[in-house]
Simulated scan of single mutants.
Amino acid sequence: MKKNIAIPLLLICLIVIIMIMLLRSCSQITRETTLVPPVNISLSLIPGTPKEKSLVVLRLFSRKLQQEMLDGSPISSIQIIADENTWTDNITFSLAKGKDKTTEIDKSRITLLRAQKDKKIAFHPRTVFQIFYAIEPSACLIPGQELSARLKLDKYTLKSNKVTVPPVPKNKHDLALRRARIHSLTNSGHLITAAETLIQEKSESHLGYWYQGIALEDNRNYQGALKAYKKALQYYPQSTESKHYEPPVYIISKIRRLQNTKKNGTTN
């Protein structure tokens, strides 16, 4: 009787061992066939005001090539194939809070502003490509939630870092600062208005003059831009706004370039 019971138990143990070995083998095959992307993406959010747009900047680079350069390995490059739909149809932006369900942002709210036009994209150790998107209105970006992106590029699926959507500012200055940051990249006409509000709210902060200079320079008012940049440099030491500053070297370089332009009588 005991022998009759022992035989089925041995068979069951043997079957379990075989199944475990098969599962491990399948798992190893899956890991080996999974394509590890040779390039990476990082996401930055430039938040706007609730009724206006926010900007998202995706940066494409190759951490693999960067590491090879740091290790002293021979310099190589990576070729990635893209098409006209890569930056629109193959991109998804998602919002999530903690472990809650992730929600994709409706594509009708997303506009591609700037992207690579080449179908063959060559990556080198120091290569960084920037892709700009607008999400409108910003009210769909709920404060406290985490924004991330997924991009299908060639035969790879790239996942970005997660960025927490910041709270909406409650005062005029900080709202104007958001508008200035957005319009410095999109609309110099609206940037002038935002810069004027910044100066009105905090006349001894460099920020209003910095953005005023950008707007005036973009409109080819080089004399006015030079004056604004000098004001920005004058007030820079008194400015203490965290995370919203331009290092003085940027302001100084703007001043020097415009001074040389004036001296040489050129506008380029």
Rank of each mutant, 00 (worst) to 15 (best):
V168G: 02
F132Y: 13
S160W: 10
E201N: 03
D71C: 03
T240A: 01
K152V: 14
N4F: 15
I20R: 12
R150E: 13
N161P: 11
Q28A: 15
Y245M: 03
L95K: 01
T164Q: 14
L151C: 04
T164C: 11
L60I: 08
P137W: 06
T261V: 07
A134F: 06
N90K: 04
L95C: 00
Y229K: 00
E196N: 15
I110Q: 02
P166C: 11
G144V: 07
L60F: 10
R150Q: 14
A176R: 09
R257T: 03
K159C: 11
S253R: 11
L9Q: 05
Q259A: 02
G224D: 01
K170Y: 05
I91W: 01
G213F: 01
I251H: 00
N264R: 10
I251E: 00
Y156C: 05
Q238N: 06
I12A: 03
L185T: 05
E52C: 13
R114G: 02
I7S: 03
I29S: 04
W87T: 00
T193W: 08
Y222F: 13
E146L: 10
L55N: 07
L10V: 09
K263M: 04
S44E: 15
A82S: 12
K254N: 04
V165R: 04
F93H: 00
E32T: 12
K262N: 02
K2D: 15
R109F: 14
D106Q: 05
P50S: 07
T33Q: 14
L55W: 11
R31I: 08
A134N: 06
T111G: 02
Y133C: 04
K117Q: 13
I105F: 01
Y245P: 01
Y211L: 04
H173G: 06
I20H: 10
E217I: 02
V128Y: 07
P143M: 07
N260K: 12
G213A: 03
L60D: 06
Q28I: 15
P38S: 02
N187S: 06
T92D: 13
R126Q: 12
V165W: 09
A6Q: 13
L10K: 04
E104N: 08
L70F: 13
A232E: 00
S62E: 06
F93N: 00
P47Y: 07
Q66I: 15
M1G: 14
A96D: 09
P237W: 00
L23I: 14
L45Y: 07
K227W: 05
S148A: 08
Q238C: 01
Q79E: 11
P237G: 00
S54G: 05
L58W: 06
Q116A: 09
L185S: 09
N161D: 04
E52I: 13
R63W: 11
R220F: 12
L35Y: 08
K231G: 02
L11T: 07
R178Q: 14
T193K: 14
Q259Y: 03
A122L: 12
K231F: 01
Q234M: 03
D174V: 11
Y209G: 00
A225Q: 02
H244A: 13
K172I: 10
I18Q: 06
S203M: 08
K64C: 08
Y245C: 01
V56I: 15
M21C: 08
Y133L: 03
K51Y: 11
I7R: 05
K231Y: 01
S184K: 05
N221V: 04
S42T: 15
